[in-house]
């Protein structure tokens, strides 16, 4: 793989079109896959290891972040050999706290940035926001794109912002680019925004902030996976995917894995290339794992919330 090779930036007005009904049909096929027994256990453990455990609230405190970080490292100690989650995801102001709490565990600290969640701030502010998070030690930056500019047709502006933030991340942090697909519109737009983000240098593309009603869905994620696949075919470069928000059950999470396996291949089935942005998914997975282990349906009372 020659990383230095020159890549032509396509004309984003000509991004491939997407047929929504076709996408939904394909999506429903992943959901008819029946994942049983050892495949299911393997999948559930993979899911845990792909979670970006997230708290992004105005009321976040040092105490809350510390609790969440502890949970990230000790999902359910009653079940031996469980993996940790992939990362914890917090606001820039909490990066240092989280960093300290997960030190030495391998769990990454991701920080949202660029005036998350709306992105409605001067570019200089977005740069400061990102620099701060990086200075605090963030391993990953989850930026939002300027949806307003996107809808004004200013694709170059959106592209340049991403490219600049990517430059700031340098070798320190991997960049996740949040499209906020619920605000982007049709699947054609999701595809175009994915292309812009990927060509501008995103290491991951991510569906949503979790701050508006419409969050990740299988059809939206599938559309983004196709963009990743096309880019890989063209350049040989892998880009990661992070659906965020709305994925709270194990069954649904497993169907996401089925989709990733069948569209991109098993190379993407690790937390280097696939993440779930979720807060309540982990506990549902734990319930399922316990069910598989004990053969008995479980109660939430036996799994700690934080």
């Amino acid at each position: 793989m020659n990383l230095k090779k020159t890549i032509t930036i396509p004309d984003f007005t000509k991004s491939p079109s997407v047929d929504q009904v076709g996408i939904i049909e394909r999506s429903s096929r992943f959901q008819t896959r029946s994942i049983k027994n050892e495949s299911k256990i393997q999948a559930l453990k993979m899911v845990l290891n792909m979670i970006d455990l997230t708290t992004l609230e105005g009321k976040d405190t040092v105490g809350k972040v510390n609790q969440m970080c502890y949970k990230a490292l000790h999902l359910h100690d009653d079940y031996p050999g469980l993996p940790t989650v992939a990362a914890v995801c917090v606001y820039p102001s909490m990066v240092a706290i989280a960093k300290e709490a997960v030190k030495g565990s391998g769990v990454k600290v991701a920080s949202v940035s660029t005036a998350f969640p709306s992105g409605q701030a001067p570019f200089s502010t977005k740069i400061d926001d990102t620099k701060y998070a990086l200075d605090q030690g963030a391993d990953e930056i989850d930026m939002v794109i300027s949806r307003g500019k996107y809808h004004q047709g200013e694709y170059n502006f959106v592209f340049d912002e991403i490219a600049k933030i990517k430059e700031l991340c340098g070798a320190q942090a991997r960049l996740k680019v949040i499209l906020e697909t619920g605000e982007i519109g049709t699947l054609d737009d999701v595809r175009r925004a994915s292309d812009i983000a990927i060509y501008a240098g995103a290491d991951f593309i991510k569906t949503s902030t979790g701050k508006i009603g419409s969050a990740a869905s299988i059809p939206v994620t599938l559309t983004m996976l196709y963009a990743i696949k096309d880019y890989f075919i063209k350049t040989g470069i892998m880009v990661g995917m992070k659906p965020a928000g709305g994925i709270s059950t194990s069954k649904l999470a497993i169907h996401y894995l089925v989709m990733v396996k069948e569209i991109l291949g098993e190379a993407w089935l690790s937390n280097e290339w696939f993440r779930f942005g979720a807060s309540s998914l982990a506990n549902d997975v734990l319930l399922q794992l316990e069910k598989q282990r004990t053969g008995v349906y479980q109660s939430k009372d036996y799994i700690s919330i934080d």
Binding site: D19, Q20, V21, G22, I24, T186
Partner: peptide, 12 residues
């Protein structure tokens, strides 16, 4: 001859 044509309808 009867010709039947199908086309998807976007449901957004």
């Amino acid at each position: 001859e009867v010709k039947t044509t199908w086309h998807p309808i976007e449901v957004i």
